[in-house]
Design a protein around this nucleic acid. Structure first.
Lengths: 353, 353
DNA sequence: AATATAAATGAATGCATATTCAAATTGCCT
DNA sequence: AGGCAATTTGAATATGCATTCATTTATATT
């Protein structure tokens, strides 16, 4: 006896089923392995007996032997952002439907580039022979990329991209989204634009900022005033205050995501007494559920979480089959115009400078 | 060769380390098993060589042999409630600190009592020899309880209780919280009270409702008007409309959680044009971060998520050691008074009927 | 009907490790 | 120095199962 007899569950094993069915252990194993050679009637009989005995193949043993575990590692950073919560919810359901397990681990800070200490638990998770690693709201450190490469674990970045390492990614169209927001704000006749940045190192912020700035420049507008809110509600409260006390107070703020936009809206409305949507326009990104609440009515560029999760799962399957492919999937969104921004004056895109 | 050679990672095993260190496989295993008999210098040498080779014991093989996996199963229902999101975040961090893995699975609807179909993935998760199952915002079905009992998996209900099955639970003090809210509303001089119920079968709702009703009865007040919002934002929008169109429109609503209270507040303010906190009072439960946003200022009874998660992890450890104990831990909260409720007229609890 | 081919089966092996058992080594005391 | 206990060690076994290999049985071909 290896296990503590007081703890050991009377788990029924292949051998028990084999004995009960009067067949070999191999037969029982084959009965649970689709595509293996076993006569249909015998398979049915084994399955029936197994069901009656409450037998299920032990996933641990199976994983050990097969070298893959049907487990997907999911690293998650900031759950304060509802977009990622929604994603996590959808992803957990999608993975269950695909008969995959989800192992969750917290990735404290989004570390980028350098060899900062990798998440301790990550070291461990990699040893579970996970089929893939999905990074949600976490940047990929080169150290982590290297570890995954060695462990042959494909990486999928969700809502992030990376140029340097071979990881797949699923993203929205940040450039288009940011340009669309810029066009919307300019169409509203705004003159002094501001950009409330997220974490500057993240590709997500970089693309949104670049797209926004590029469009403004194309239209002959000066670069926007800039503050950083690090994708955080609290940090954005402070950042917005800094924006609004300026002598050249902006008349429109594009925030790199909705969490930050909600903070900006809160400060503008309750601390500065501004009529958001008339005296100042505020736009966000993601279109989280709260954006449509009457209390906020936040104009935002949507990210299609359902579609993005579907693509993520599709990628997982693709990577499970043929190794060494790496894709970048882009899912377009839509501008959701609500009351937090002044309506556009002209139909169509602004034509003048 | 069992594994596909193109996929197989060059994972370093005990044998590799043993060979490199010139010791037996057993010695290497013992080096990684605290408390096992091995001379200190040899242990150090093995650890050093292992570290250099990048070796870590395979958790799958280890779990298979030991009969326990260091994995905690976490069933999660509704992530729309920020309280559970916060809990999940805290729990994932706490488990990582305790060197435990978190396996997440979605539990679609909170099923209670009857033998409705159990979550399909759950069947599977149980076979991972998980050390414990934590149910977040999910009721315990008798079927699930039975399955866990057979698999020797201890259950911890978070924010729920159950009378029938032997599961441990971590809860706030719902009765006290509801009574405190009731006292607060009566103290504000309200006459026509309403209760916006969550899922009626949940113990959480039952206790809050009972506590609220009991206090009102003790103070000689009639039973509150009642509607059901099923802990859902959308359902609560509709339920609040039903409440507010009544001829005997309530002048105070106690909602069984904050998500519902935010919906009620939204409807009262934006659809009925009511001045919340003056014309009508609305109180919630949980004290989620949004409750303190200036846009809402929701009076709420707090649930100490940090403390509750700590207790959950403590319970996990306790249950890992000695089987067959089952505890109920209660964590008291605090009344957070904000602008959504009329201030109390008198100091101290109301004295009159 | 006889052979060739395909399908079905069981014994044996291995996955990566922890633990038991017995042997070997060490330390200790007189 | 000698004997006994305590400690250290390696070989062997077990975990639960998938897969290979050789063998038996069923199906197709002429």
């Amino acid at each position: 006896m290896v296990r503590d007899p007081t703890l050991s569950a009377p788990a029924v094993s292949v051998h028990d089923v084999a004995r009960a069915a009067g067949v070999s252990q191999s037969a029982v194993s084959r009965a649970f392995t689709p595509g293996s050679s076993l006569s249909p009637d015998k398979r049915d009989r084994i399955i029936a007996i197994a069901a009656q005995m409450g037998y299920r193949p032990n996933p641990l043993a199976r994983s050990l032997l097969r070298g893959k575990s049907n487990i997907i590692g999911v690293g998650v950073g900031d759950l304060a952002n509802p977009f990622f919560v929604q994603t996590l919810q959808l992803l957990s359901q999608a993975l269950e439907s695909a008969n995959l397990r989800l192992m969750l681990f917290p990735a404290h800070r989004s570390e980028n580039g350098g060899s900062q200490g990798a998440e301790p638990s990550l070291q461990e998770v990699l040893h579970y022979r996970i089929d893939a690693l999905v990074l949600l709201s976490v940047s990929l450190s080169s150290k982590l990329a290297e570890e995954c490469r060695r462990a042959q674990v494909p990486i999928i970045l969700y809502n992030r991209t990376t140029g340097q390492h071979d990881a797949s990614c699923v993203v929205g169209d940040n450039t288009m989204g940011a340009r669309t927001i810029a066009a919307h704000l300019l169409g509203g006749g705004h003159q002094r634009l501001a950009f409330l940045a997220g974490t500057p190192e993240s590709s997500t912020n970089a693309q949104r900022e670049a797209g926004f700035n590029a469009y403004l420049a194309e239209q002959g507008h000066p670069a926007p005033i800039r503050e950083e809110g690090h994708f955080s509600f609290d940090a954005s409260l402070a950042a917005t205050r800094r924006l609004l006390v300026r002598p050249d107070r902006p008349d429109a703020i594009f925030c790199a995501n909705d969490t930050m936009a909600l903070a900006a809206l809160t400060v503008a409305r309750h601390e500065f007494g501004l009529d958001v949507g008339r005296e100042i326009s505020i736009a966000g990104y993601d279109d989280v559920p709260m954006a449509s609440w009457p209390s906020f009515g936040l104009t935002s560029y949507s990210q299609p979480a359902t579609r993005m999760v579907d693509e993520t799962v599709r990628l997982i399957h693709a990577l499970r089959t043929r190794a060494e492919s790496h894709e970048e999937v882009q899912c377009p969104g839509t501008l959701m115009v609500r009351g937090s921004t002044r309506p556009v004056k002209f139909k169509g895109p602004t034509m003048e400078g």
